[in-house]
């Protein structure tokens, strides 16, 4: 019986360590890309303790995946976003939507559309929320992503005027 108790208390610790390790690995490895963002609802940027945003992609070129006839282009489930560098910084790349196997071969970076679908959340400290909300209305905001070879994205940092938001405020 005691053995089961040991398993019972060790499993949560190991599980949390695995979660931390996986997240740490994802943010430290992979190619860095920076995508401009905008508030999901411009009237109400911060919902409680997190910023609700969406990516503002610089669409360019012809899509071959998703709703290719749509007037307003948007990431589609199951597709990949083909990122093409503008300059060397990885900031605000040109984007078009392709099938993932194609994007992995021909693009500078390939980002799974599923990981950027719908409203995204960025957690902020409650005592800085008001300052951040005001800054977001006046400055250019962007998210720095680390994208692994499979196209999965991990958020590294929220940038204001291309600087980490804690430094910029």
């Amino acid at each position: 019986m005691k053995r089961w108790t040991i398993i019972a208390v060790v499993v949560p610790v190991l599980g949390l360590l695995a979660l931390v390790g996986r997240s740490e690995y994802a943010t430290r490895h992979g190619l860095a890309w920076t995508i401009p963002i905008q508030g999901y609802d411009p009237r109400d940027l911060l919902h409680g303790h997190y910023l609700l945003y969406r990516y503002r992609f610089q669409w360019d070129g012809v899509d071959t995946c998703g709703d290719t006839g749509a007037i307003e282009r948007a990431p589609a489930a199951g597709c990949c976003l083909c990122l093409s560098s503008v300059g060397v910084s990885g900031y605000d790349p040109r984007v078009r939507q392709l099938h993932c196997d194609e994007a992995e071969k021909i693009c500078d970076g390939s980002l799974r559309a599923d990981s950027v679908l719908g409203p995204q959340q960025y957690f902020v400290p409650e005592d800085r929320a008001l300052d951040l909300e005001n800054a977001l209305r006046q400055r250019e905001a962007a998210i720095e992503l680390a994208i692994d070879p499979q196209g999965n994205a991990a958020v590294r940092e929220l940038l204001l005027d291309r600087r980490p938001w804690r430094e910029a405020l």
Binding site: L16, L19, Q120, F123
Partner: peptide, 15 residues
């Protein structure tokens, strides 16, 4: 444990 999972989600911005 639930709070810890939420904390990891916040620190690493898991969305």
């Amino acid at each position: 444990v639930l709070a810890s999972i939420a904390l990891v989600g916040q620190v690493y911005q898991l969305g």
